[in-house]
Design a protein around this nucleic acid. Structure first.
Lengths: 213, 213
DNA sequence: GCTTGTGAACGAATTCACAGCT
DNA sequence: AGCTGTGAATTCGTTCACAAGC
């Protein structure tokens, strides 16, 4: 049960399990079994059981899984029992849209700062947060104890922003710009690129739907 | 070279290759080899060669790959030689931000319509497009020959919107709402959920960076 | 010489099938 | 009886290492 050996793919499914379990809880279901959970998440029962087995023995044979317990356990594994502090860098349309999005708050994250280098935006406030400039970003990130940064900057500015964010002590970056980031060992980056996803969808159209996604 | 057997993982890397190749082209590089391309994309040379081998014999031994040819070939495989017609459903902050994003146009997609069911938005125009209501969405999707839809709707409205989109003949959906979509066989869905990515990053923080992402 | 293309070896993830517990 | 947990089998993907060709 050394969780250094939880497979990557399992980790990537944990958020979906969590979402389904919260939904089950909202529906007053005290228990789920691997079958029903699999159906809710779009997987299969064997996958569910195998995934959970990497985290420990979480269920009861003959019965199933206790929804509340399982939520607690997964939240602990994901490290979101206490809210994680996040910041948005790049307060353009996209950054602004993300700041207004309530989903982060419901899923374990609190946006505690926003940064941009546009003089006309710095100092203005949005959703209760003041927009900071990029000059003192390292200091502000440290002062506010920011753990995760969402980069919503223009492509050309992104690597530079990432460098500052890293030197501000941040160890996890969600990059929304279509650029490969160069970061030191020990900093985790996840890349989200909608154009990439559209291109993958286009491939499936080109195949006439003959392949699964 | 039956491309029904191009591995999923290879397909998912093609957009990144394409991006790097376009960059190489912009830098006046007529040729690349598997090493340099791997470096640009953050993979390794063996992976690059294997991936391309699924698409045919695209390179020249002793020389490398012709950048222009390779761009053409990958674009063809991805089905983006001619622009694909896309629409955005849900014209909230996120939908609005996406409409204003120029990256889609540069990567093979044209946003040809926007939909929302908010009375106060319908009929207004944004970025040269009029916002349509949801009532006649099937008809409009067909008239404009929309191939791909981006769902940027509130969670609760998403499945309903997806159903209409599907009955409008659309076979590819990019879903930005945190809900598992139920769609008929033959419709491709890709799910993007930033909260999910943040949770995965949180896991890595919880592990103290001991795991790769 | 250099670089691709690819079978073969390896490793990772999914699925199977059943033993073990309630 | 019902459902989990897990080794074993299978499938899928990556990496290796070298032969083929420029």
């Amino acid at each position: 049960m050394e969780n250094a050996q939880v497979p990557q793919t399992t980790i990537q499914r944990l958020p979906a399990y969590l979402r389904c379990l919260l939904q089950a809880q909202a529906n007053q279901m005290p228990l789920v079994n691997s079958n029903s959970l699999a159906e809710m998440c779009g997987t299969n029962a064997a996958q569910v059981r195998k995934d959970f087995s990497y985290l420990g023995e979480l269920g009861t044979r003959g019965i199933g899984y206790d929804v509340g317990e399982l939520i607690g356990h997964i939240s602990r594994v994901l490290g979101i029992v206490e809210r994680r502090r996040a910041a948005i860098v790049g307060f353009g349309k996209l950054g602004g849209a993300l700041l207004g999005y309530s989903g982060f708050g419901e899923r374990g994250f609190e946006i505690v700062a926003v940064f941009d280098n546009d003089r006309s935006k710095i100092g203005t406030s949005a959703d209760g947060l003041m927009v900071h400039g990029m000059d003192d970003i390292e200091r502000v990130l440290r002062e506010l104890d920011v753990e995760i940064v969402i980069l919503a900057t223009p492509a050309a500015a992104t690597q530079g922003a990432a460098d500052k964010v890293v030197s501000g002590g941040v160890k996890a970056i969600l990059n929304l710009a279509p650029v490969l980031l160069n970061v030191p060992e020990g900093v985790a980056v996840r890349q989200v690129c909608l154009s990439t996803d559209l291109q993958i969808l286009s491939f499936h159209l080109a195949q006439g739907g003959k392949t699964d996604l």
